[in-house]
Design a protein around this nucleic acid. Structure first.
Length: 423
RNA sequence: GGAGAGUUGGCAGAGUGGUCGAUUGCGGCGGUCUUGAAAACCGUUGACCCGCAAGGGUCCGGGGGUUCGAAUCCCUCAUUCUCCGCCA
């Protein structure tokens, strides 16, 4: 959520910036400013009445103490009038505040100045590319075929037991998953992150804090009996640790990492995008989160980008980095880098990571703040990134490393898997 | 799931209808003393809203109510602890 004060002060720039996200903000921004004016006026009016009322209440106390019943009764009558006046304003004020908040959360985060204009993924800017394109054998096949040949991922079994998008991993497939999770976690710990095991279900306040609610409600699984949401990413619990927290400035940077299952309804997805491991309802991901001082968050974003690049390098996967265009960015992000690996048998680039700086957008929703050197309370910046999401990494590993001997496991992983080939 | 007791500032812990945003202790910060430090002593120490400021308002788990006035009384939800039941 954008800061109200900034909206008031920079109306025109905000409208202009949001146009990069193809968001027409003029009407909404003006409405917000108008509502805020109404709110301030009502608030002032109410505060004045309450001030008088408080004063009267004290006087009544004094009258009673002195035994002046008559004066007390008179003051009481006066006080009742004030109370009635306050009662008249209160619902109006509450209504205004609610409406104002509802409008405020409709505004997306401002894109960073480096964000390219654009509407679709085609407009994303490729800023980096690395790795050797694998040369595949003639009879190379996509990962879903390899999965059944080597009996390492069973999609049909998942269909039977749960439904589409919930595969079983089996044998070396399951061990490869476990190896990747441990590898990613160890790399993050090595880079100074603290490991967490978060809850997989969160309450509405947490979903709201990181921005999944209210607008992406339909993407999350929901347990209505208990009013809990299954997390679409560990970002939600991991960032919400700091909801309503005022951290110390010298705690920065706060670096946390968590492995979790992620659950996404993926309503509206179809076709080749959802084939095999390309898009699942339940998948595994290691997520890194940082809470940082506003002056240093972009430096941190670069550091996180390098961390993710390092992982892909060690896995020997060809990858590229995109700077997302305004139209493809998330609602909450100010700048996002997507990482894509090349999955040779499908001949496609697959997104395996998304690294974002949210600046103070999530922090404002969450009231995540810090005290600066002058003792002023300010909003912190939040960042996160996948490091990494497993299924598409597995897809690329299987496809790119296939040969007549089986599937070769990259050297960085063999200590974790305990085997060098899937055969 | 049942019964009972709690939830107060960074922490501990008073306060059971009026001058309480809240006694006190610890911790934090500043100072005196000291070559330096410790100890001791003195001072200071929450968040939010409106306002240039002076000042005003809100917040004692969340929400609602009673009252001229609520941390204090009532209702409700959440949560913690103890006991019982069930259970990986």
């Amino acid at each position: 959520m954008l800061q109200l004060q900034k909206i008031r002060e920079n109306r025109d720039q905000i409208i202009e910036r949001l146009a990069v996200k193809n968001f027409k903000a003029t009407a909404l921004v003006d409405e917000i400013i108008e509502l805020d004016n109404t709110r301030r006026n009502s608030q002032k009016e109410l505060d004045d009445i309450l001030a008088l009322s408080n004063q009267l209440a004290k006087e009544i106390g004094n009258h009673y103490a002195k035994g002046e019943q008559g004066k007390a009764e008179l003051a009481k009558q006066e006080s009742l009038k004030l109370k009635a006046a306050a009662k008249a304003i209160e619902p109006l004020l509450m209504e205004t505040v609610e409406l104002l908040n509802a409008k405020l959360i409709e505004l997306p985060n401002l894109p960073h100045t480096s964000v390219p204009n654009g509407k679709t993924p085609e407009d994303n800017e490729i800023i980096y590319e690395e790795g050797v394109m694998p040369r595949l054998p003639e009879n190379a096949v996509p990962h879903w075929d390899l999965a059944s040949t080597y009996k390492i991922v069973d999609f049909e079994l998942g269909n039977k037991v749960t439904g589409a998008g919930f595969p079983f991993y089996r044998g070396k497939g399951a061990r490869l998953q476990r190896a990747l999770i441990n590898f990613f976690l160890d790399e993050a710990i090595e880079a100074g992150y603290t490991e967490y095991q978060p809850p997989l279900l969160v309450n509405a306040a947490s979903g709201y804090g990181t921005g999944q609610l209210p607008d992406k409600e339909g993407q999350m699984y929901f347990a209505p009996e208990d009013n809990l949401y299954l997390i679409p990413t560990a970002e939600v619990p991991l960032t919400n640790i700091y909801r309503d927290v005022i951290v110390k400035e010298n705690d920065f940077p706060i670096k946390n990492v968590a492995y979790s299952n992620c659950f996404r309804r993926e309503a509206g997805s179809y076709g080749k995008d959802v084939r095999g491991l390309n898009r699942l309802h339940q998948f595994d991901k290691v997520e890194i989160v940082q809470i940082q001082h506003p002056d240093k968050s972009y430096q941190t974003l670069e550091e996180m980008k390098e961390h993710v690049a390092g992982l892909l390098r060690k896995l020997e996967l060809p990858f590229r980095i995109l700077r997302l265009c305004g139209g493809d960015m998330s609602f909450t992000s100010a700048l996002t880098y997507d990482f894509e690996v090349f999955s040779a048998a499908q001949n496609r680039w697959l997104e395996v990571s998304s690294v974002s700086n949210f600046e103070d957008f999530q922090a404002n929703r969450m009231k995540l703040r810090f005290k600066d050197k002058e003792g002023k309370t300010r909003l912190a910046h939040t960042l996160n990134g996948s490091a990494l999401a497993l299924p598409r990494v597995v897809a690329a590993l299987l496809e790119n490393n296939q040969s007549a001997e089986g599937i070769k496991i990259p050297d960085a992983l063999t200590n974790y898997t305990g085997f060098k080939f899937i055969d």
